[in-house]
Design a protein around this nucleic acid. Sequence first.
DNA 1: TCAGTTCCTTGACTAAAGTTAGGAAAAGCG
DNA 2: CGCTTTTCCTAACTTTAGTCAAGGAACTGA
Lengths: 193, 193
Amino acid sequence: MESELFDFIAGYMPLTEPEKQVIVDMALFKRVDKGTFLVREGELSNAYYFVVRGCLRTYYMIDGEEKTTAFYTELQNLAPLSTVNKTPSDQYIVCVEDSLLLVSTLDTEQLVFERFPRFETLCRLLSENLLAQNQASFDQFKNSSPEQRYLRLLDTRPDLMQRVPLHQLASYLGIKAESLSRIRRRVQQKART
Amino acid sequence: MESELFDFIAGYMPLTEPEKQVIVDMALFKRVDKGTFLVREGELSNAYYFVVRGCLRTYYMIDGEEKTTAFYTELQNLAPLSTVNKTPSDQYIVCVEDSLLLVSTLDTEQLVFERFPRFETLCRLLSENLLAQNQASFDQFKNSSPEQRYLRLLDTRPDLMQRVPLHQLASYLGIKAESLSRIRRRVQQKART
DNA sequence: TCAGTTCCTTGACTAAAGTTAGGAAAAGCG
DNA sequence: CGCTTTTCCTAACTTTAGTCAAGGAACTGA
């Protein structure tokens, strides 16, 4: 169960057995049911999430409509702006499937850093990486059409198509549900020729 | 000259005089002329940049066209994916104006961390913050039309309009130069009524 | 089982961005 | 200074996304 996590971490920095034990002992793993809200708009949040198994979704409520902006699945990390800034959240974070999460709060983080100083270096490297990756995704998004974005998603995260309703994927791709529907038809027709 | 930097850092963590001195002594400040490339496509990069004064631009060459994706101005931070990943860069980073930068390489960073351990915490906090902010910008980008994005840019970074050619701003906004031209006309007409 | 959602698609229409082409003003350079 | 390049705008046309309306399929809960 934890092995996925430690394999992932090893990509940044291999951990010793005692170090792994620190994480396990702190009982940071948490099972969360589908439909559970981790944060709602207006609430304060003090946790960071690492998805071991399952799927989280972030969305905003704008003019009574849900605007989905991200999905976090296996081995992805979510540091809500609300947690980082200690300000009320402007978005919702909800559990899309029954999930297994590593939940670390500002408090537990501090404890881990004391017992295991290298963990701060690990967190720094991870943040730097995620920042650069996020910027690269943003860059790619700007330079591609809705259809190209759909095709890329199909290529990089095909699982999402099965796991998530299409109208949520549409707003994730920055378009309306009707447009996504038409894009899918267009793409299928091209493939058939 | 360095005071802008230290004022900025104080927002995360006030530094002591000796700590400030470490940074100044390491002579990490660098003047860079307009037109200078910090990284080209295919090159390796091993530096992080903090803009004290001036402006940097990142762009990709796609089908012989420059696709600008970001501008870094006063008090903004740039950690190129190439530096983070130690892989050849897929983008260009160029100096748009004569600029004053704080340049930190992987080597100098290590030295600073040793002489001044709190610096690593500072870097972690900064990365976490920038990541959450970048994600929020990305979210907003997805949920707004080209016109809304233009108006927001006008609101949040009006200086860019003067500092940078419009066709570069267009691709930064994820649209073509012709579209930006039309949007500007539309907006002006609305304002005139 | 049935009623009420939610989800997905389609069609007709509108609005806006992409494409292509051209031209004028401004800036850079010999 | 003239020349070239860059920058910016315009226009006509094409393509595609947004909007509004509707209907059917799939799922949900009493």
